[in-house]
């Protein structure tokens, strides 16, 4: 079955959506991601949507759900790379993605994830200099 690959990078999960997603594929991604967050004990999820042509209400809702679910599982979600045309259209459509963090690109998204990693957790790796 068709699946969107989820990459692991340290305590973060990386998803880059490169295909024109149909609704079932989006639902599968949502399920896979929550499974992986628990399995990998991930602290952050980064979703790159820079090659997505549109974000309609269904995809918008999926992004919101992923953010809420991962927050419940102690992981932050950042959506990165939204194209201007997509953003303009979403505003017109009435979608605001409340509760979802956004960043311009993967690099800035990673910065946000690093910043939000909770302090005081027993971690073996050294904190980045802020």
């Amino acid at each position: 079955m068709e699946k969107i690959p989820i990459l692991k990078m340290g305590r973060f999960l990386l998803v880059s959506i490169q295909v024109d997603m149909h609704d079932r594929l989006a639902m599968t991604l949502q399920e896979d991601l929550t499974d992986r967050i628990v399995k990998e004990n991930a602290r952050g999820v980064l979703i790159d949507i820079s090659s997505m042509e549109i974000v309609d209400s269904f995809i918008g809702r999926m992004l919101g759900s992923i953010a809420s679910m991962s927050r419940m599982l102690n992981a932050e979600t950042v959506v990165v790379g939204m194209q201007p045309a997509v953003a303009i259209t979403m505003v017109e459509l009435g979608l605001s993605l409340s509760g979802v963090r956004t960043a311009l690109d993967v690099e800035k998204g990673m910065e946000i994830l690093h910043r939000f990693r909770q302090p005081g957790e027993e971690e073996t790796d050294i904190d980045d200099q802020a």
Partner: peptide
């Protein structure tokens, strides 16, 4: 491009 995106998004909503 912006207009294309608007039309495709509307089509997606209505088709769904």
């Amino acid at each position: 491009l912006v207009d294309q995106t608007k039309i495709i998004t509307a089509a997606s909503e209505l088709a769904r």
